[in-house]
Structure formats: structure tokens, C-alpha cells
Design a binder for these strands. Structure first.
Lengths: 136, 136
DNA sequence: ATAATCTTTGCAATCGAGTTGTACCATAAG
DNA sequence: CTTATGGTACAACTCGATTGCAAAGATTAT
């Protein structure tokens, strides 16, 4: 796995204190995290600083955001080599029980045939149900 | 197309003034509508009344909600015979330019193979890009 | 090295969608 | 007629997202 420094360098984003801790935290998570999750995990940090950091990361394709319907936008680190192009689209799974959101990197994204003259640019695909932990 | 009265009767929801106008309005729309859209279209009506009406409609599977990432939940009338089961899942298309959201009823929903022991219950699938009107 | 400039950060305030409490009213039930 | 039930309107509130601003820090020019 790439380090914080490597990622920031590749994506040409200046390394700062807040960016380092936020990205390091996100790299260590299996699930996508909300602003609140991150703020709570990094007790000493400021909400708006984290917010702006996430915006910066998203603009520079270090992370992607997921609208899972929970009311809070969640963020996850992009896979290595991701450019947030169509080829990088993937499904997400939201667990109705534990409220966690997973990136399903392993499930191929099927090209759906849109109506005439519609053009796909991005997608927000969220499958909801019970995750392996909660489906018992 | 079914009438307002027929739908309310089939879904066993009492017919009232607000319900009639909200459902009639939704039936006449091609695109999914936000609470704000509906409120603005029905100038004489109250936001919270429309809100509770939408909740009632959703609980009774008259309409379904879509989280398209625009920041506002949108609502669209369910297709005839819809029970909001897995078989009724469908894709949505959000236009980045005109901010309209379409139900893509004609595109088959592909069963995606989830990781072991994950169970699908619902889905919120939103493809984003340019609609036929804006893709010029 | 110092000054000027730009960027990042922290704090407080604001915005807006969603939601809820409450009182009033119409209708249905007794 | 009286009471119970459910729907509606209005106002207020919650909370995630976002912004304004000034201080602190980093970078560049002199």
C-alpha cells in the first residue's frame, strides 16, 4: 500500500499537518468514513479544516465521496491508479444494520445501456442490505 | 395510466386534499421531484404537510425516493404493479447540467454478485452525466 | 534576512433540507 | 350530540454542510 507521502506527491497535493493525519486515518479504515467519523477520530482537529481537506482530496482524486443515503456523505481512499474515470467506477454496499459503507472494488461495474444521447460521466451506486457481519 | 383515486384506493391510503394535489402533481412529472419542487409548484400548500404526505406515500409504496447526491431527496411515482421489491429496483439518471433525475425503468437491473454472506435488500443506483437535452 | 504574498487552519456563524411539536379542524365512530 | 381519530398548517428546531474572517504558517521576491 502506498504511504501518505507517496500519495500526496503523486497527486501533487502539498503535505500539511491536517492532510497527513486525515489521509493516514482514511488509509487505515476498511469502510468509508463521514466527516463526523473523521472529526471524532481526530479529536484535536477542526471540523472545517477536515471538511476543506476532504474537498481538496476529492478534487485531486485522492479520495471519492459516496452518498449512501445515511444523511452523511462518506469518503474512501481511491484505489491505487484510480483517476476517478468511468473505469474506476465501483459499487458500494451500505449495511442497514451497522450503517457502514463498503467499497466493492471486486465486483465489475456493468456498462448499462443508457437511452439515446444520454452520456454517463459518473455514478453513485449503492446496494443496501445486510453485511456479512450483520447477516446472522 | 392510473388515476389518483385508483392509486390511493389500491394502496389503501385515504384520499385527502393535500394527497390528491401532491399525487396528481407527481403523476404529471416526467422527472423525480424534490420536496422543494413540489412545495414551489403547489404554492398554497404547506411544506410539512407535503413532507408528511410524501412519507405516507413512500410507506405505502405509492412513490419511491431517490438520493441522487444533489442534496435533496427526490420522489417519483412507482410504476404500476410496483411493490418496491428487489424486482422493482431500477437505475436512475441524474443530469449534471439540468439537475433533473430520471427513472430508467427500461434498463434491466443486473443482479450483482455480492461478497459471501452479504444480503441485498434495496438499492440506490444513480448514473450521472448529461441527459439527452443537455448533451449537445 | 526581511518583507510581501499566498495558503492553510481554527473558530464562529450561517444555510438549508429534513423533521417534529402543537393546536386546530374535518370526518368517522359511538 | 359527543368523542375519538387522523390530517393539516404554522412555527420551531436539528444537524450536516458550508462559508467569512482573521491568525498562523509557508513560500517567494527583494
Amino acid at each position: 500500500m502506498q504511504t501518505v507521502d507517496e500519495i500526496l506527491k503523486i497527486k501533487k497535493v502539498k503535505n500539511t499537518a491536517v492532510r497527513t493525519v486525515v489521509l493516514r486515518y482514511l488509509l487505515n479504515q476498511e469502510k468509508a468514513q463521514s466527516l463526523k467519523d473523521i472529526k471524532n477520530a481526530l479529536v484535536y482537529s477542526d471540523r472545517s479544516s477536515v471538511f476543506r481537506t476532504l474537498k481538496t482530496f476529492e478534487e485531486n482524486k485522492i479520495i471519492h465521496s459516496i452518498h449512501d443515503g445515511s444523511g452523511m456523505v462518506k469518503y474512501a481512499v481511491c484505489a491505487e491508479g484510480c483517476n476517478c474515470d468511468l473505469k474506476d467506477l465501483h459499487y458500494h454496499f451500505y449495511c442497514n444494520n451497522c450503517n457502514k459503507t463498503f467499497c466493492l472494488f471486486d465486483i465489475p461495474f456493468q456498462n448499462i445501456k443508457l437511452p439515446n444521447n444520454f452520456k454517463i460521466q459518473q455514478a453513485n451506486m449503492v446496494v443496501k442490505g445486510l453485511c456479512n457481519n450483520c447477516n446472522k
